[in-house]
């Protein structure tokens, strides 16, 4: 299997004010994602998941370390093959679903004559065909999340990065998103998904990356991580206790 993304010794620190000492958010993070893997990105708030994703998308620049895509492809070229959805973004609510997709299609520089056909297929995948002419301001939170996934899928990416795609959704919304993600998994699309919902990750992911205080604590198959436990949640709690985390403190 070819390596889709390889992160090596990534470090990043931020200053909250210019006179304060920098806080180390990422401390030599390393992991790799291979073709076709569905990888779960787990860690408590502030562990560095979103910062790692931002480094991977080159929104922020690491102090040290490297990120490689598709066998040494530069990030700008790799972006043509990457789909991305941040956590709870704002979409231009005056656009209709189809106009929103067209905007992103044009930004990607894809051939205009192929938009209609592609958009219909993707809207069907995210179950939004009925709402394509509805303005985004009339979409529910779940529908907005699905149109967000649709924009990420628009350019037929080989690698999809989703930052907490199920955060804040009701049970129906979660089920719908999970269905979409399962279909992506069947199509062998490589996915990196950060989430706090261990139950969903257990169902979807065959690989896990666990971050804690800016360090990679685990990177391997889900099955190895939870081999002596009934569920991922129980395994995760036991793992955290093992590294000294006290849930009763």
């Amino acid at each position: 299997m070819s390596v889709i993304c390889k992160v090596d010794n990534l470090s990043k620190s931020f200053r909250t004010d210019f006179y304060k000492k920098p806080i180390h958010i990422l401390k030599n993070i390393s992991f790799k994602i291979e073709e076709g893997q569905f990888v779960g990105f787990i860690g408590p708030n502030g562990a560095g998941k979103t910062t790692t994703i931002k480094c991977m998308m080159q929104f922020i620049f690491p102090e040290s370390g490297t990120i490689q895509y598709f066998d040494h492809m530069d990030i700008q070229s790799a972006k043509k093959r990457i789909g991305f959805l941040p956590e709870r973004p704002y979409f231009q609510e005056f656009l209709t679903g189809i106009e929103f997709l067209k905007f992103h299609w044009n930004l990607s520089g894809l051939p205009r004559n192929k938009f209609a056909e592609n958009a219909e297929t993707i809207l069907a995948q995210v179950k939004l065909t009925h709402a394509k002419n509805l303005k985004l301001k009339n979409y529910s939170k779940g529908m907005l999340q699905r149109i967000g996934i649709a924009q990420a899928l628009l350019a037929s990416p080989d690698f999809l990065i989703l930052d907490e795609p199920m955060s804040g959704l009701d049970p129906d919304g979660r089920i719908l998103i999970k269905d979409i993600l399962k279909k992506l998994k069947e199509r062998n699309i490589t996915v990196l998904m950060s989430s706090h919902l261990l139950e969903d990750l257990e169902e979807l992911c065959e690989e896990l990356i666990i971050l804690h205080q800016g360090e990679t604590l685990f990177n391997g198959p889900t099955i190895d991580f939870k081999k002596n436990f009934d569920s991922l949640e129980v395994a995760y709690a036991a793992f955290k206790r093992q590294i000294g985390y006290n849930y009763n403190a």
Binding site: K79, G83, F84, L85, P86, G109, Q151
Partner: peptide, 9 residues
Amino acid sequence: TFQVILARP
């Protein structure tokens, strides 16, 4: 919004 747009090439 900036991130969603910047994710494009």
